[in-house]
Simulated scan of single mutants.
Amino acid sequence: MELISGLPEDVARDCLIRIPYEQFPAVASVCKGWNTEIHSPDFHRRRRTTKQAQEILVTVQSNIDSEKTRTGLLAKSTTNPVYRLSVFEPKTGSWSELPLGPELAFGLPMFCRIAGVGFDLVVMGGWDPDSWKASNSVFIYNFLSAKWRRGADMPGGPRTFFACASDQNNQTVYVAGGHDEEKNALRSVLAYDVARDLWVPLPDMSRERDECKAVFRRGALCVVGGYCTEMQGRFERSAEVFDVATWKWGPVEEEFMDAAACPRTFVDGGDGAMYMCCGGDVVALQGDTWRNVAKVPGEIRNVACVGVWEGAMLVIGSSGFGEPHVGFVLDLKSWAWTKLVSPEEYTGHVQSGCLLEI
């Protein structure tokens, strides 16, 4: 059976890889051939190699109460915020919201972490929005079917404020550090094979790391900063790297960061450099040297989320507690900022985010 009647197979496939990701579920339901094609391993590869893949930033963002925003009562609200998944497409500047599954009908767990692998978005851990009890649950949203499924729970019990990073090629999510229900900082690291729904323990890190940050680059998991149980909020500058090929941790680099600070904005630039926001500056690590490359826009005093794609960095944050969250894009060549146009309903508090290439 032809994919598209009257067209050669290669031309038909060229048409299908140009479909926007939002239309994947509808296209897959047209016929068996289209469903098979869109779910084939080569489909994602062809979209990437032909530059048809779409970059999107998914954030864990609170719902906005428009009335409180207009009357200035947002910062004085005593009710617990309800978090959802917001999606921003840098190329088009459009915003949208992902539907939540039945088990998440009352909102995402507070302080949950998210990571993208292939066509899947993985939501891990966090606090139950009603009981505030820590969870080790895993939920997975598939962009091809627009459906949720439950993943295997994180082993070892609930952990909070852990780092996570994904390896798009191997369909693996890594979880590192954080703390347990007794607020003991953790050294343990886990790898989650999303396709097989299987968790595998990695060798422990050299030290406890609560509120650390992780990135996956060049075949290795890099875990940055954090603090041990006794230090409680006093961040350190160190980092350590796990080589997946050798299954070993390298030596700890004690002075990896230029300053002791929360590393949540630390990201891999994909251009050989790594970036983070620190003390009102955007700083870049190139080789062994950190340097200031830009000032964070004055409208952002608290940076909540940073994402980097080809030649650009997105920074989302607010001017203060309870204030609307706004976004700016930094051109990594000219170092010029452009403010995003954000509809009011997408200016809620952002807890975390991740970039996906779909």
Rank of each mutant, 00 (worst) to 15 (best):
F161S: 04
H349T: 08
T36V: 09
P263Y: 13
P129T: 08
E344A: 14
M231C: 13
T36D: 13
R113G: 12
F256G: 01
L104K: 05
S77I: 04
L3C: 12
F321D: 03
H349Q: 04
V282W: 08
G269W: 01
S40Y: 02
R207L: 11
D193M: 03
M1S: 08
V123Y: 08
E22Q: 09
R209A: 05
Y275E: 03
T160Q: 13
A214P: 02
G177K: 05
T229C: 06
D42F: 07
R150L: 11
C164S: 13
P8R: 07
W199F: 09
T289W: 14
D120K: 15
L3G: 04
I140V: 15
P324G: 02
L100W: 06
G287C: 04
T265M: 06
L340E: 01
F111R: 14
H44P: 01
S238Q: 10
I114M: 14
T69R: 15
G93Q: 04
S145Y: 08
K32F: 12
S137T: 06
G233R: 15
T71W: 04
A146F: 07
R45A: 09
D10Q: 15
R207N: 10
G327V: 00
E55K: 07
E103V: 00
K183T: 12
Q54T: 15
L202K: 06
F106H: 14
R113M: 14
L144I: 13
C112F: 08
F43Q: 03
C228E: 07
A312P: 00
D153W: 06
P343M: 05
P203V: 09
G250A: 14
L16A: 07
F256I: 02
E323I: 06
G298Y: 10
S318H: 11
G279M: 14
I38L: 15
A75P: 02
R217G: 01
A336T: 10
A294P: 02
I358H: 12
V244Q: 11
V329F: 00
Q23M: 08
A163W: 10
